[in-house]
Design a protein around this nucleic acid. Sequence first.
DNA 1: TTCCTAAATGAAAATGATTATCACTTTCAA
DNA 2: TTGAAAGTGATAATCATTTTCATTTAGGAA
Lengths: 159, 159
Amino acid sequence: MLERHRRGQSWWHGKFSGYGYKITAGREIVLGILVGSEKHLSAEEIYIKAHAINPAIGMTTVYRTLDILIEMRLVNKFDFGDGRGRYELTEGPKGLRHHHHLVCTSCNRVIDYTDFIDEEVELLSRTEKGLTGKYNFKISHHLIQFYGLCDKCHSGREN
Amino acid sequence: MLERHRRGQSWWHGKFSGYGYKITAGREIVLGILVGSEKHLSAEEIYIKAHAINPAIGMTTVYRTLDILIEMRLVNKFDFGDGRGRYELTEGPKGLRHHHHLVCTSCNRVIDYTDFIDEEVELLSRTEKGLTGKYNFKISHHLIQFYGLCDKCHSGREN
DNA sequence: TTCCTAAATGAAAATGATTATCACTTTCAA
DNA sequence: TTGAAAGTGATAATCATTTTCATTTAGGAA
Ligand SMILES: [Zn+2]
Ligand SMILES: [Zn+2]
Ligand SMILES: [Zn+2]
Ligand SMILES: [Zn+2]
């Protein structure tokens, strides 16, 4: 699960061709940026980084690449309430763990947490099974977010 | 918990003034529309209904009213991936039950489900407690969505 | 009830993220 | 090597949401 990373061919090459997509410089750079950051990047932030690496890359390619990465389930898109999409690798290489989010409704800060994840995921998979049966829905992934006020935003208030 | 609904004063009047907001015709109509629909309405859909009731109501008021309803935790805003916000009453009058969503990534259909909710909510409240302690985060609400393909969208495909 | 002022409003313009267009370039299988 | 299909960037277009600002209104005080 980890040793395929040091092949000459990057681990995602097979995935791309499996979906009928070509491997291009722009796509490699965008994916590389996501692999290299822990943060939840916006399309523009990715564009700036990509553009710094190779100024030939345009915004359009960033969006289009993100779309196919999402389709291939390599990337998740989130909405944290700040008016722009936020992109993050699904659990992938780098030992990135599956996690959920705490979102501050005041300052939009996002905290990843992995505590309680095992229990949550266990319940989710049971729920998934039930829902799949009852609604004949083919579930591919889930989203869990808690909203509230982070420490900085609720200190100094009474309620 | 239910008897206050048949007062002359609507049940939400206290809530508005408690937050320092005035009660206006536009706000009453917007809230009334949300109370009267099961669907997850977009701002524009609400605007159209509101405008039909009272043509003086503008789009701006719809957005502004939704903002304060969210602030008062009477309404939740969702993102189902179709590029526009979707608004729905939180559990309120009408015996509206707390529920979660199944979102079809192909046709954007949304199914509310309440099955398994009790178990989920029980786990969530334990998780909440843990997260509140560890991250000093004041949690006010949560979001759970499952994504996948609805029956219509995955019939006739192999994977 | 009348008055007064902060709050609320609508129309219109502005914003800003995302998407569509289209002529040009690149990939890759044959 | 080559050609068709896929990919691309610059630019314009879209379109949901927000801002602006002159005007109206809600609701507490008198
Ligand atoms: Zn905060
Ligand atoms: Zn995250
Ligand atoms: Zn569907
Ligand atoms: Zn719902």
